[in-house]
Design a protein around this nucleic acid. Structure first.
Length: 426
RNA sequence: GGCGGGGUGGCGGAGCGGUUGAACGCACUGGUCUUGAAAACCAGCAGCCGGGGUCAACCCGGCUCGAGGGUUCGAAUCCCUCCCCCGCCGCCA
């Protein structure tokens, strides 16, 4: 949610900023409604003030023992008129709320220009594509039924449908090691670990900006009016909804572990192979609440951690500054780390981190106290590791000619086997 | 799932139809006192919205006492629905 006050005081600036992401006309919608709203509000408030004053004088008259039947009758008569005016006001407020809900966050000036994925700017490239002395395979060839047999999509399809999978054997050990390793790394940096609920109320989805924009991507449980989260970002952001922080309490850094559920509506036929794009996976997610002045630095910090993780796992990657038109509604700026996948011979999104500035904080009403009154905090999120993409990248990077997988040494203290090979399973 | 108690400002906690946006305490801010600090004393201190303004430190008005409806000239206070918290019982791990 954008600050309505700011929208009025810096109309041109915000219009121009939103136009970059193709949402400039919402500003006009807002201004029109806002003008009408203020007109009606002034009217209604005058009526209310009159009636409040009259009620007060009735109370005083009654104290004195005067006859109050005449002023009371007069008050009664005004009720219908007031109700009618308030009705009109409520309608305008409703329409205004809808416009505000559709309005995405103001993009950061340094977010890349453009409307599509291709418009992302490459910030830097790390490492080189790995060299194999043989044609590299993709993760599904390596770990699927034709390979190590540790990913079973066929059974999952029968049980749950397409884009679901069973993870088996050493891949399960690998996932646990990866998560434990990542958790340990973040713990040492002062992040507080959290296992959040994965079923949330609509308010949490609206508050984080996933509704209304991405509603079709979310699984819902109508009977209980709950929704399955697509990321721990949702319950983590909502953790402090309605909260008033003291200045010294910030920043707060959390690392959440949760299963993530995504409908992948509209992605039919895309990335259907293996576990690159699935309905269910596990994710280690960073989430930060901080002062507005600190959010850029926090964003850089989260990105640095994501890069460190990618580097220690041995990946070749590039950092992409996502184009404004490709940002999710709540994001002001977003970096993706795209890992080079040997099996696909191209860069694919591995992790992502966004600065949502005060967009979510406004919707969720998370503030902190300053000398000049309460202000909204800034919120940021970023992927540390996932059981799908991080895992499959490890499989592809570690592949040997004989089809076994060599895993990074850093994961071994956390329970990952040095090598995954068929012979051990058979 | 059943019965009972409760949701009030940053926190605790009064108020239970009228001049109460809310006593009191804590916390916080400023001041007096002090060599300094503490204590004591004095003062200030909810948020949001609109209007005015030397656009700030000010003035006026409105809304908000879990959420939404209703009764009433008037509701934090009464009624209804929903949400949440606490306790006991039942059920299940």
């Amino acid at each position: 949610m954008i600050d309505a006050k700011q929208l009025r005081s810096d109309t041109d600036g915000i219009r121009a900023a939103l136009a970059r992401r193709g949402a400039g006309e919402l500003v006009e919608d807002f201004l029109k409604l806002d003008e009408e709203h203020r007109r009606l509000l002034t009217e209604v408030e005058h009526v209310r003030a009159d009636r409040n004053a009259a009620a007060k004088s009735i109370a005083e008259a009654k104290q004195r023992g005067d006859d109050t039947s005449v002023p009371i009758a007069k008050q009664s008569a005004l009720k219908a008129q007031q109700a009618e005016e308030e009705q009109r006001l409520a309608e305008v407020q409703q329409r205004m709320a809808e416009v505000m809900m559709q309005m995405p966050n103001v993009p950061d000036p340094t977010a890349a220009d453009g409307m599509s994925e291709e418009d992302a700017e490459t910030v830097r490239v790390y490492g080189e594509p790995p060299k194999f002395g043989f044609p590299p395979k993709d993760h599904f060839d390596l770990a699927g039924p034709e390979g190590l047999g540790l990913i079973d999509t066929e059974s999952a399809a029968r049980v749950s449908g397409s884009r679901f999978h069973y993870l088996l054997g050493d891949l399960v050990r690998l996932e646990f090691a990866l998560m434990q390793w990542g958790l340990d790394k973040l713990l040492r940096r002062g992040f507080t670990p959290v296992i959040p609920p994965v079923l949330v109320r609509e308010e949490a989805m609206v508050g984080t900006g996933f509704f209304p924009e991405a509603r079709e991507q979310v699984y819902e449980i109508p009977r209980d009016e709950l929704f399955l989260v697509g990321t721990a970002e949702v319950p983590l952001a909502s953790l402090h909804a309605g909260r008033m922080f003291e200045t010294a309490e910030l920043p707060l850094r959390y690392v959440g572990f949760s299963t993530c559920f995504r409908r992948e509506a509209g992605a039919a036929g895309r990335d259907t192979r293996g576990i690159f794009r699935v309905h269910q996976f596990d994710k280690l997610e960073m989430f930060v609440f901080c002062h507005p002045e600190a959010s850029q630095e926090e964003h850089d910090g989260i990105l640095a951690i994501e890069e460190e993780i990618a580097q220690e796992l041995g990946f070749h990657y590039r950092v992409q500054n996502i184009a404004v038109g490709d940002l999710g509604a709540p994001a002001s700026k977003k970096y993706d780390i795209e890992v080079w996948l040997p099996g696909q011979q191209r860069y694919r999104e591995l992790t992502s981190c966004s600065n949502t500035t005060d967009f979510q904080a406004r919707r969720l009403d998370v503030r902190y106290r300053t000398e000049k009154g309460p202000r909204h905090v800034h919120m940021l999120n970023g992927t540390a590791a996932t059981s799908s993409r991080t895992l499959l990248a490890l499989v592809e990077y570690g592949q040997q000619e004989d089809g076994s997988i060599r895993l990074p040494e850093v994961l071994q203290p956390f329970g990952a086997p040095p090598t995954i090979s068929r012979s051990l399973v058979d």
